[in-house]
C-alpha cells in the first residue's frame, strides 16, 4: 500500500488517529481500516476518475429537476431534430422536438435505478446459491449447479428477452429479467471461492467452537467471497447497462415516452444518417458510465482483493 509513502510527522491529530497501528476500540479499528483502504484506492487515478463520474451521475440523477433546462416530455414539433448547439437546446432535440439534454439528465435516474436494483438482486442471489452449493456439497451442490448451468447455457440477452416477453414490457420486468440472467456467474465465482475456503483450518476451527453451517456461511465464507463479487459486479455494470439499453432498444424495457438511454438510441436510429446526434449522444452517455464502472472495478479489485492485502 502507498500509505507508507505519505509524509509523516506533521499529520493533524485526526490523521494519526486514523493511521494508527494500535486502535483503542472496535469502532476505531473499523474506521481506521476503512480510511487506509480509501488511501490506497485514492492512489489509483483511473479508479478515482471512474468514481468521480459515477458520483456526478448520482448527483445529476438526484437533482434532475433542478439541472434539466427543459421538461423532458414536452414536445415541440416545430423545432424537431434541432442540431447540436442549437438555441436553447445544447444537445439538440429529438424527432418530437424534446430537449435531448434534459432527457439524458432524467434518463440517468432510470439507468441508475436499473443498475442499482440489478446490482442488489443478482450478486446476492448468486452469492447465496454459490456458497450454499459449495459448502454443502453432495446432492445439494449437484442440483444447484446444474440449475446454474442451465441458466448459463442461454445467451444472456435472449434469455432476458424471453423473460420480458413472458412478464410483459416495463422497467421493473426488465430489472427482473436482467437479474435472472445475471446471477449464474456470481454463483460460479462464489462456489469456487467457497470450495477453496471450506476445508481450511480456520473454518475447522470455528466448527470446533460449535458454530452451525448458517453462521459459517454468512460470517466466515461470505466476507471472503464478497470482495471478488464486488469487483465482478462493477465490471458487469457496463454489461447490465447495455442489457437494459438493449431491452429498451428492442422496445421491451422502458416504454416511451420514458427517457431511458437505450430507448433514446432506438428512437434515434431512424434518423441516424441525417441526424446522427439523436442516437449518438445517449450512446456516449452509456459509454461514459460503463467506462466509469469498469475503472472503478479495477481500482476496487486492488483495494479489496484479500490475496493482496497484508503485504
Amino acid at each position: 500500500m502507498s500509505v507508507s509513502g505519505l509524509p509523516s510527522g506533521n499529520h493533524p491529530k485526526w490523521r494519526s488517529w486514523l493511521l494508527t497501528d494500535t486502535p483503542t476500540s472496535r469502532h476505531h479499528a473499523r474506521i481506521a481500516s476503512l480510511y487506509q483502504g480509501w488511501l490506497s484506492f485514492r492512489s489509483n487515478p483511473m479508479a478515482m476518475f471512474g468514481l468521480v463520474i459515477l458520483l456526478m451521475m448520482g448527483l445529476i440523477a438526484v437533482f434532475a429537476p433542478l439541472l434539466a433546462p427543459h421538461d423532458p416530455f414536452v414536445q415541440d414539433l416545430s423545432n424537431r431534430l434541432a442540431p447540436l448547439g442549437a438555441d436553447d437546446h445544447l444537445l439538440g432535440t429529438d424527432s418530437l422536438g424534446r430537449d435531448i439534454l434534459s432527457r439524458l439528465i432524467y434518463g440517468a435516474r432510470i439507468t441508475l435505478y436499473i443498475v442499482i436494483l440489478v446490482a442488489l438482486i443478482a450478486p446476492v442471489a448468486g452469492l447465496f446459491v454459490g456458497t450454499v452449493a459449495g459448502y454443502a456439497g453432495g446432492w445439494i451442490d449437484t442440483i444447484l449447479m446444474r440449475i446454474t448451468d442451465i441458466f448459463l447455457a442461454f445467451p444472456r440477452l435472449v434469455l432476458a428477452l424471453a423473460f420480458v416477453a413472458a412478464l410483459g414490457a416495463g422497467i421493473e420486468n426488465a430489472v427482473i429479467a436482467i437479474s435472472l440472467t445475471a446471477w449464474p456467474p456470481y454463483a460460479r465465482i462464489a462456489r469456487a471461492e467457497t470450495l477453496t475456503i471450506r476445508k481450511s483450518d480456520y473454518i475447522s476451527a470455528v466448527k470446533l467452537q460449535g458454530a452451525g453451517p448458517f453462521r459459517i456461511i454468512t460470517r466466515h465464507i461470505w466476507p471472503l467471497c464478497i470482495s471478488s463479487l464486488i469487483v465482478r459486479v462493477t465490471l458487469d455494470m457496463a454489461g447490465i447497462i447495455l442489457a437494459a439499453a438493449g431491452l429498451g432498444f428492442l422496445g421491451l424495457g422502458a416504454q416511451p415516452p420514458s427517457p431511458e438511454w437505450g430507448a433514446m438510441i432506438s428512437e434515434g436510429r431512424k434518423f441516424i444518417l441525417d441526424h446522427w446526434w439523436v442516437a449518438t449522444v445517449p450512446g456516449l452517455a452509456i459509454f461514459l458510465v460503463s467506462l466509469a464502472f469498469n475503472l472503478l472495478g479495477d481500482g476496487l479489485r486492488d483495494v479489496l482483493d484479500p490475496k493482496d492485502s497484508g503485504s
Binding site: D201, Y202, S204, V206, Q209, R219, P223
Partner: peptide, 23 residues
C-alpha cells in the same frame, strides 16, 4: 484443538477481537 499452521488457522478478515468475541 490448536492447529498446526497458525497462518491457516485464523480467518484472514477477522481481527483478534472479532475472533475471540465470536468464540
Amino acid at each position: 484443538m490448536v492447529f498446526q499452521d497458525p497462518y491457516a488457522a485464523l480467518h484472514p478478515r477477522h481481527s483478534v477481537d472479532q475472533l475471540l468475541s465470536e468464540t
